[in-house]
Every structure is written in structure tokens, then in C-alpha cells.
Measured scan of single mutants.
Amino acid sequence: MDETGKELVLALYDYQEKSPREVTMKKGDILTLLNSTNKDWWKVEVNDRQGFVPAAYVKKL
């Protein structure tokens, strides 16, 4: 969790967005987890953008 109590995830792999609903991340990025109710796609925030990334590409910290 960060200082505001939000849950964080670590990008395990690079991911290039394939639609406007997704976000690009690089391996090693720390992202804010917004929603993990879907087992396949998690909603995150990175670089002031919100979108989805494959759940298998990130790990909760």
C-alpha cells in the first residue's frame, strides 16, 4: 500500500495497450490497483492514466 492506503501492484512484464481501455506498463513499474474483481483484467492507474492490464502480468505488493 502507498501512503494513501491504496493497494499497489508490480508490473512483472512489459505490456503495450491494445485498446483505449488499457494502459501501457513496463516491467518494474509500480501501479495503483483500482479494481481486481475480474480474474483476468485488473484496473490500475499509472502515470495519471486509468485502464486495464492483464492480471497475470502484475503482482500485488
Rank of each mutant, 00 (worst) to 15 (best):
Met1Ala: 13
Met1Phe: 13
Met1Trp: 13
Met1Leu: 12
Asp2Trp: 14
Asp2Thr: 14
Asp2Phe: 12
Asp2Lys: 11
Asp2Glu: 13
Glu3Ile: 14
Glu3Phe: 10
Glu3Trp: 09
Glu3Gly: 13
Thr4Tyr: 13
Thr4Leu: 13
Thr4Asp: 13
Thr4His: 12
Thr4Pro: 14
Gly5Thr: 12
Gly5Ala: 13
Gly5Lys: 14
Gly5Trp: 11
Lys6Phe: 12
Lys6Leu: 11
Lys6Glu: 08
Lys6Val: 13
Lys6His: 12
Lys6Gly: 10
Glu7Ala: 11
Glu7Trp: 13
Leu8Ile: 08
Leu8Met: 10
Leu8Phe: 15
Leu8Asp: 04
Leu8Cys: 11
Leu8Val: 08
Leu8Gln: 09
Leu8Trp: 14
Leu8Glu: 07
Val9Tyr: 10
Val9Asp: 00
Val9Met: 05
Val9Leu: 12
Val9Cys: 14
Val9Phe: 06
Leu10Pro: 00
Leu10His: 04
Leu10Thr: 07
Leu10Gly: 02
Ala11Pro: 01
Ala11Trp: 02
Ala11Gly: 03
Ala11Gln: 01
Ala11Val: 09
Ala11Ser: 05
Leu12Pro: 00
Tyr13Pro: 00
Tyr13Gly: 05
Tyr13Trp: 11
Tyr13Phe: 12
Tyr13Glu: 09
Asp14Phe: 04
Asp14Ile: 02
Asp14Asn: 08
Asp14Gly: 06
Asp14Thr: 06
Asp14Trp: 04
Asp14Glu: 05
Asp14Arg: 03
Asp14Cys: 06
Asp14Met: 03
Tyr15Arg: 02
Tyr15Lys: 01
Tyr15Asn: 01
Tyr15Ile: 01
Tyr15His: 04
Gln16Pro: 06
Gln16Glu: 14
Gln16His: 13
Gln16Phe: 14
Gln16Leu: 12
Gln16Lys: 13
Glu17Leu: 07
Glu17Tyr: 05
Glu17Ser: 15
Glu17Gly: 15
Glu17Val: 06
Glu17Ala: 15
Lys18Asp: 05
Lys18His: 08
Ser19Lys: 07
Ser19Arg: 08
Ser19Met: 07
Pro20Met: 09
Pro20Gln: 09
Pro20Ser: 11
Pro20Tyr: 08
Pro20Val: 09
Arg21Ile: 12
Arg21Pro: 05
Arg21Asn: 14
Arg21Gly: 14
Glu22Asp: 05
Glu22Gly: 13
Glu22Met: 05
Glu22Ala: 06
Glu22Gln: 11
Val23Ser: 02
Val23Gly: 02
Val23Thr: 06
Val23Met: 12
Val23Ala: 05
Val23Gln: 03
Val23Phe: 13
Val23Tyr: 04
Val23Trp: 05
Thr24His: 04
Thr24Asn: 06
Thr24Cys: 06
Met25Asn: 00
Met25Lys: 00
Met25Tyr: 02
Met25Asp: 00
Lys26Phe: 11
Lys26Pro: 00
Lys26Tyr: 11
Lys26Ala: 08
Lys26Ile: 07
Lys27Ser: 07
Lys27Asp: 02
Lys27Met: 08
Lys27Ile: 05
Lys27Trp: 03
Gly28Met: 03
Gly28Glu: 02
Gly28His: 05
Gly28Thr: 02
Asp29Leu: 05
Asp29Cys: 07
Asp29Thr: 08
Ile30Gly: 01
Ile30Asn: 02
Ile30Pro: 01
Ile30Met: 06
Ile30Ser: 03
Ile30Phe: 06
Leu31Arg: 01
Leu31Asp: 00
Thr32Asp: 04
Thr32His: 09
Thr32Ser: 08
Thr32Gly: 08
Thr32Ile: 15
Thr32Trp: 14
Leu33Gln: 00
Leu33Tyr: 02
Leu33Trp: 01
Leu33His: 00
Leu33Gly: 00
Leu33Ile: 05
Leu33Met: 03
Leu34Cys: 06
Leu34Phe: 04
Leu34Trp: 05
Leu34Met: 07
Asn35Met: 08
Asn35His: 07
Asn35Thr: 07
Asn35Asp: 15
Asn35Val: 08
Ser36Trp: 09
Ser36Gln: 10
Ser36Pro: 05
Ser36Cys: 11
Thr37Arg: 10
Thr37Ile: 08
Thr37Ser: 14
Thr37Asp: 15
Thr37His: 11
Asn38Phe: 08
Asn38Asp: 15
Lys39Ile: 10
Lys39Val: 11
Asp40Gln: 13
Asp40Ser: 11
Asp40His: 15
Asp40Gly: 08
Trp41Glu: 04
Trp41His: 03
Trp41Tyr: 07
Trp41Phe: 06
Trp41Ile: 03
Trp41Met: 05
Trp41Thr: 02
Trp42Pro: 00
Trp42Gln: 01
Trp42Tyr: 07
Lys43Asn: 06
Lys43Thr: 07
Lys43Phe: 15
Lys43Trp: 14
Val44Thr: 01
Val44Glu: 00
Val44Asp: 00
Glu45Pro: 00
Glu45Phe: 07
Glu45Tyr: 07
Glu45Trp: 07
Glu45Asn: 06
Glu45Gly: 08
Val46Lys: 15
Val46Cys: 11
Val46Ala: 15
Asn47Pro: 10
Asn47Ala: 12
Asn47Cys: 13
Asp48Gln: 13
Asp48Tyr: 09
Asp48Cys: 13
Asp48Gly: 15
Asp48Thr: 10
Asp48Pro: 05
Asp48Met: 10
Asp48Trp: 07
Arg49Leu: 06
Arg49Cys: 05
Arg49His: 07
Arg49Ser: 06
Arg49Val: 07
Arg49Tyr: 05
Arg49Glu: 05
Arg49Trp: 05
Gln50Gly: 06
Gln50Pro: 05
Gln50Val: 15
Gly51Leu: 04
Gly51Phe: 09
Gly51Ala: 03
Gly51Glu: 02
Gly51Pro: 00
Gly51His: 02
Phe52Arg: 03
Phe52Pro: 00
Phe52Val: 06
Phe52Gln: 03
Val53Arg: 00
Val53Ser: 01
Val53Leu: 02
Val53Met: 01
Pro54Met: 03
Pro54Lys: 03
Pro54Asp: 02
Pro54Arg: 04
Pro54Val: 02
Pro54Leu: 04
Ala55Met: 05
Ala55Tyr: 03
Ala55Asp: 01
Ala55Ile: 03
Ala56Val: 09
Ala56Ser: 14
Ala56Lys: 15
Tyr57Lys: 06
Tyr57Cys: 10
Tyr57Ser: 09
Tyr57Gly: 05
Tyr57Pro: 01
Tyr57Val: 05
Tyr57His: 06
Tyr57Arg: 06
Val58Met: 06
Val58Glu: 01
Val58Phe: 05
Val58Gly: 01
Val58Trp: 01
Val58His: 01
Lys59Cys: 15
Lys59Thr: 13
Lys59Val: 15
Lys59Gly: 08
Lys59Met: 15
Lys59Ser: 09
Lys60Asp: 04
Leu61Gln: 05
Leu61Ser: 04
Leu61Arg: 03
Leu61Asp: 03
Leu61Lys: 04
Leu61Tyr: 08
